[in-house]
Measured scan of single mutants.
Amino acid sequence: MLSDEDFKAVFGMTRSAFANLPLWKQQNLKKEKGLF
């Protein structure tokens, strides 16, 4: 599990902003970052 700081560094957004994205968009971002 990423820390909040690492999460923001990897995804360029906060966890709450990420959580507001549609599920497909979350999955695409995870795949792009190799976290899926």
Rank of each mutant, 00 (worst) to 15 (best):
L29W: 03
A9Q: 10
P22V: 02
K33Q: 07
N20W: 04
V10F: 12
F36H: 13
A17Q: 14
M1I: 14
E5L: 11
A19Y: 15
K8I: 13
L2R: 06
L23K: 09
G34Q: 08
S16V: 12
S16H: 11
S3I: 04
G34E: 09
N28F: 13
Q27I: 15
S16P: 07
F7N: 00
K31P: 03
K33F: 08
S16I: 12
M1S: 12
F7Q: 00
V10H: 12
R15W: 04
D6P: 02
L29A: 03
E5H: 07
W24V: 06
F11H: 03
L2K: 04
L35M: 13
G34R: 09
G34I: 08
K25H: 13
W24H: 07
F18S: 00
W24N: 06
Q26I: 02
K31L: 09
M13N: 00
L29S: 02
K33I: 09
K8L: 15
S3M: 04
L29P: 02
A19V: 08
P22C: 04
S3P: 04
V10Q: 08
K30R: 13
P22M: 03
L23H: 10
N28K: 15
V10Y: 08
K33W: 04
E32M: 10
A9K: 15
V10L: 15
Q27P: 01
R15N: 03
F18E: 01
A19M: 14
T14P: 05
Q26Y: 01
M13C: 05
L35H: 10
A9S: 10
E5M: 08
N20Y: 05
L35S: 08
Q27D: 14
L35Y: 15
F7K: 00
L29H: 03
A19R: 09
S3G: 05
S16N: 10
Q26W: 00
E5A: 10
P22I: 02
G12D: 05
T14Q: 03
D4V: 04
K8M: 14
G12K: 03
E5K: 08
Q27W: 09
K30I: 15
W24D: 08
L21A: 02
E5I: 07
V10T: 09
D6L: 09
N28E: 15
K25S: 07
F7I: 02
A19W: 06
T14V: 03
F36L: 14
L23F: 12
K30E: 13
K8E: 15
A9L: 13
M1Y: 14
D6K: 09
